[in-house]
Design a protein around this nucleic acid. Structure first.
Lengths: 190, 190
DNA sequence: TAAAACAGACCAACTAGTCGGTCTTAACTT
DNA sequence: AAGTTAAGACCGACTAGTTGGTCTGTTTTA
């Protein structure tokens, strides 16, 4: 608290005039970015027709938040274990909503025949959430790749993982999959 | 500390007779499972010839640790942010070693032509590490899938993501990829 | 001039870690 | 076999420092 208050350039009194507890601040931090992804996710889900496009857009937006809200996300994951019950619940609710969107998309993909029939909706969803969420652990702005690039690569990996093999071969979604070695498109590879 | 010592059924004095600090305990906890994965990873890397087999074995073992050392891993990730400098370094060293094994495997896969040429070695590696590491956040022993199943599904997803499309179609690695909807093999799906 | 915004000394609860002491174990002596 | 002894294992009251949070003010704003 002393640290927070000092860094922000305020005082205990000032802080507690706006927040009832440290937990509320933490909750607010989480809510800021989760609300953002959720809105973007819903929008992506609703504006596209094919499950492939939906998934592409959702993942892209999802990855993007880690660029926009890096600080928020880092402190949230660092402190979230100590969050009080009441807040834990509403945090989980919103996260579950996002998870549902991904799951529904994969389900639709299987139904439509675009995605592989043998996919486990639950586990595939958790794999996607995991690989993206983990970004906060390793992403550095000074790193070799921009968030934009990481997003594109993740989309490529995920779509190759879920799409029917024939669909990939048929070049249906050529523009959203990586074709040439990445550097050949004007980006750095590896 | 009071909690740890109480839960374990010992005392402060007893504890500090064996450890110089709480950090050392935390380090020991991490070292237990990281050493395990690393050994398994190296073994997997060295005993297989094709990059595909290597990756399959590495991922399978990697996922497995999360079943074997769930408690270790949970407390490590919960407390690791507060770990002192000196320990942080040796923790990072071992984790980097494992990362290197995965990266080398993907590199080899690209060179051999089994994996897609357009893969970013770094990002693909981080995607794999991420989706597996995230397991500790959601895996419940009471859940619908065993670790064994999750491992198989993750291998299937990852290999579909990295393998050349033609390789998949040719049924070269039929046994390590999922073919039928999972439940048809006697497992629960979704 | 009153309410909202802010300040910071203060507090209770908790943190990791210490230290003087007791108990256990097992090798050594008789 | 019984007694001696010393080192390792273990105990828990205590401490210094930190934590989130309160409360009595003062300042700012409209």
């Amino acid at each position: 608290m002393n640290q927070i208050v000092e860094d922000v350039g305020t005082s205990k009194g000032g802080f507690y005039h706006h927040f009832t507890s440290k937990d509320e601040l933490l909750f607010e931090i989480h809510d800021t970015f989760i609300t953002h992804v959720l809105e973007k996710g819903i929008y992506a889900y609703e504006t596209h027709h094919s499950p492939t496009r939906k998934l592409q857009a959702i993942v892209k937006e999802f990855v993007n938040v880690f660029g926009l809200y890096k600080a928020h996300i880092s402190v949230f994951y660092q402190e979230s274990t100590y969050l009080k019950q009441q807040y834990q619940k509403s945090v989980k609710d919103k996260r579950d909503q996002f998870k549902q969107i991904v799951m529904r998309t994969i389900e639709e993909g299987k139904k439509s025949g675009e995605f592989r029939e043998e996919l486990s909706v639950e586990i595939t969803t958790m794999a996607i959430l995991g690989m993206v969420n983990w970004i906060y652990k390793w992403y550095r702005q000074s790193g070799a790749n921009t968030m934009e690039e990481i997003g594109d690569i993740f989309v490529d990996l995920i779509l190759h993982a879920v799409l029917q093999t024939e669909t990939i071969s048929k070049d249906n979604y050529k523009e959203i999959l990586l074709d040439l070695p990445f550097f050949a498109k004007g980006n750095r590879n590896d």
